[in-house]
Design a protein around this nucleic acid. Sequence first.
DNA 1: CAAAATACTTGCAAAATGCAAATAATAATG
DNA 2: CATTATTATTTGCATTTTGCAAGTATTTTG
Lengths: 149, 149
Amino acid sequence: MENNVREMFQIMTRRFGLLDKNCCTAGGLDISLVQSHIIYEIDRKHNPSIQQVADALSIDITTFSRQVQSLVKLRLVQKTPLPEDRRINILSLTTQGKFVATVIDEQMNDYLKEVFSHMSEFERDMVINAVKLLNESMAKSSVCCTPLG
Amino acid sequence: MENNVREMFQIMTRRFGLLDKNCCTAGGLDISLVQSHIIYEIDRKHNPSIQQVADALSIDITTFSRQVQSLVKLRLVQKTPLPEDRRINILSLTTQGKFVATVIDEQMNDYLKEVFSHMSEFERDMVINAVKLLNESMAKSSVCCTPLG
DNA sequence: CAAAATACTTGCAAAATGCAAATAATAATG
DNA sequence: CATTATTATTTGCATTTTGCAAGTATTTTG
């Protein structure tokens, strides 16, 4: 039993990773896994800086800088220097970028809905509570993942 | 509430992905995320072929072929042609490879133990049941992840 | 104001990726 | 039984991604 716990988490993680990998074609563009995470994070945070998003996703800042450049080139993301500290660049989604974020979000929600359709309502609530609990516990953990939240 | 569901899953997935990213230094070697997944899968399956592992991990077969080559070079993995069909190469872990798999496994289990330590026993059981249920439902899903199990 | 710190970018060189094509072995067909 | 698929894996090649070291620009600190 104890032995299976890691296996269960490994499989679950891999499945969600896979889902991401298949993601995403949106608005006629092929979005990579990393790009979809970046778009998601910019959408979620309120005017994040480059550094903040890189930290949140644990991506090396130099790699991230270039990822942002390519998203800017695709006209999905905008960089705006912060007036009160011009070292800092604020990231935001363009209209096109918001559209892509919405499409990806719908795809993910459809998938989650489909997965939940194989459960009873009781089970569905249990799973949601469990994931919430897991996130809270991981946030408390000293081992990993402090930047996330 | 509905809105938060995807967010919860996104955060959870990212956290477990992160954990993997930090993983692993084992036996004096730095193991990449992809390598740790490959080692895990070879350990888990019984004498898998190259094709089988590539499918299980949804890695392009040509990329995977080269990943295996580098793991062979690191003396963590062995390729053995199958006698009854010499097109097929069976993968197995060397002693060193098994050691690395064990070290990674212990790290992951320690982490899970730490995460669960922030919960009651009741909550822990709920989370484990929920993850099991999730995996079963994802397996039933038509959208994603059929090769996994 | 000079030195240190912060936010970000660029130069490289190494690694990873994936399509197309090759090789090698087996299975299927006529 | 020779020929043609089919399957498993590898290599060529060109592109992309990655991350360290070093750079620029701006702000903070002493």
